[in-house]
Amino acid sequence: MGESAQTNPVPMRDSFQPSTFAFDAESEGAIPGILAKYPAGRQASAVLPMLYLVQNQMRRQTGSAWVPIAGMDEVARRLDMAPIRVYEVATFYFMFNLKPIGTYHLQVCTTTPCWLRGSDEVVAACRAATGIEGWGETSGDGVFTMTEVECLGACVNAPIIQVNDDFYEDLDGDSTKQLLEALRRGEPPKPGSVKGRQTSAPEGGPTTLTTLQFES
């Protein structure tokens, strides 16, 4: 308010934004396959997979999976869209990180089922192990970013953390601590239930219908 008529917008970008982005050979290899899925003239439909390409390439190249503005601009150019249309999509979906994140993106579920099963402990363990205080922040060493997410759709194995693309389930304070230590050592454990449950079968069996005993 009250600014004079003379102020001109100077394109202002956060210092972490790279000024350019170019697809590398691996991404380039994937692009024709993506574009071929859509009818001619409807290439704009490829915007979501293309943004994922950018995010994954950033992970490969910088260790941090995120989508810089220059990357969105490149997607716009490839798909012949106005850049703002790509910004709209990228900012709409939670799955695109719009600023650099840690090597491991801890997406902690705190929705009711996970919460009932002790997500508070999981959160506390994460905080203690990473030193992160607020949601969306990255630890000082750049290893972890902690994000609060809504139901991940795996409530049967609550509570859950999604680390990058993998789910770790049936967590509690201790197992969370061990998980983070393993991650810090660069030795991600096998995804799934940390208690060794087979998928979401009952703990201690039965694991198949054939082992079920029915009383007559």
Binding site: P11, R13, Y87, E88, T91, F92
Partner: peptide, 19 residues
């Protein structure tokens, strides 16, 4: 096409995103 609606729901904003 310079204007758009970025983000979602309560956070939606109308603007140019990049100033």
């Amino acid at each position: 096409p310079d204007l758009g609606a970025t983000s979602r729901g309560e956070h939606m904003e109308v603007g140019t995103y990049v100033e």
